[in-house]
Computed example of a mutant assay.
Amino acid sequence: MDPALPRLPLDDPGLRTRHLLALPAGIGPDEVEVLAVSRFPAARWETRPGVLQQRAPGARGARGTGPTPGVLRVSRLSTLTGPYAVQPGEALSLGLPAATAVVYDAACPRERGERPYPGGDREGLKRAFPDAVPVREEERVLLWLVAVARRLGGAVRTGERGTVLTPDIDAAIDLTVYTRGWLEPDETLAVVQQVLPRARLAMDGVPWTGPAPDAGRHARPGLAALGVPERGGAGLRDALERHGIEDEDLRRRLHAEAEAYDRAMLAEPPPQTGYGALVDLGVDGLLAIEVHGEEVLPPLLRELPWAKAGAVAYRVRWEPTDIEELELERPSFEHRVARGRAMPQVQAVARALHAAVGGEIADAADFLVNPADL
């Protein structure tokens, strides 16, 4: 146990009703602060962890009164207090992993909704709250705590039931490169093929040659059942006749204008705003690379000069053969084996794209990733 940290107040009766973030040794409060700002842009230390200094009566200067926890305000209603040191026996008494070295105490509103719906539960919140799932602020804080635990190899003890969530650190392997650099489809394909030669562009579709030759010329079956008169109704017909326009003339004019617009769009299509590429991984599923403009960026990127007006996102996603397993807290052994084989390929493609276009890499939780760590 680190003697420089305050002890976790196990005698606090409210401790076991609040959410706790448990982390292994070697993770400093600065790392937790960065991850807080990554999700809550206004997060800040109200009190930094350290040694409280106070002047003793009749003494010269100040003296330390022992280590004190910090108070990190993550939002207007929620705080994270810590780090606290814990011994292995204390961690086990709370149901936390034996490797737990420090604990943060999360205080947030208790906001619960309905019973959880059936279906996936990647974060484990449905298991932890079977009667009423957290909503609003409590849900936001808990999802962040689980994301931090996944990123740092820790665990989360949830409130009054004391359910412990130990998220798989490899459960979310998708990566996104954010940058101002735009690559044309063939350029992106060339970059990806440096890593995975089997990659191909996923831009095939059904060619569109314009509307049908008789489009707009004849009423279609079923209009009468919808209450639409075959020839526009008496009121419309009377108005057209007053202006010397026959109903069929109007149809022909509208059809000619639409046809001219379609020909212009086919001749000069609008600039491309997105495209994709695929890599067939066989029994391990697919690797999808999606390129498009993105206006909503991770908080840590929004104030960067090159990202103020948005950015280009190069998303590298793994799709297993059974998509539903992505949402399971504990997927099958086969899924985890396939994921383990796909992970280095996701990372290699993200590294190659980053080397080509620059910018920043973010994981599935919008936490930034150092390319050197991939």
Rank of each mutant, 00 (worst) to 15 (best):
G153W: 05
L287D: 04
L8D: 08
R115G: 10
V177I: 07
R48A: 09
A132V: 04
L72E: 02
E295W: 13
A171S: 06
A224R: 14
A199Q: 00
L183T: 10
G89S: 13
G244A: 01
E139A: 05
G340V: 00
L297P: 04
L8F: 10
A239K: 13
L165P: 01
P109G: 06
A264N: 14
P41N: 06
A350L: 07
Y117W: 13
G358L: 07
G66H: 03
A106K: 10
P344Y: 02
A147C: 05
V357H: 03
V34I: 15
P269G: 08
V34K: 13
D186P: 08
R237Q: 00
D11L: 09
V102Y: 02
E327A: 15
H354M: 03
L328F: 11
G274N: 09
L10E: 02
N370C: 11
Q53N: 12
A56W: 01
V146T: 10
P116W: 04
P130C: 01
G162Q: 03
G124K: 12
H243Q: 15
G282Y: 05
A202V: 12
A365H: 12
L183K: 11
V349H: 09
G359I: 12
P167W: 07
Y84Q: 12
E319P: 06
F367H: 12
I169T: 14
P221Q: 15
L143P: 05
F129C: 00
T17H: 13
A107P: 15
Q53R: 15
G274S: 08
D366A: 11
D174T: 01
G162E: 00
A190Y: 01
L281V: 01
P6C: 06
G113S: 09
G359L: 10
E360A: 14
E90I: 04
R63P: 11
L35H: 13
D322H: 13
G82Y: 08
A190Q: 02
T321K: 13
I173D: 01
A190G: 02
E241H: 06
T176A: 05
L240Q: 03
T79H: 10
G82W: 07
T163N: 11
V291N: 02
V71F: 12
V133E: 07
E294Q: 08
E268H: 15
L145R: 05
Y261T: 13
W144M: 03
G82F: 05
P67K: 03
A348H: 11
P41F: 02
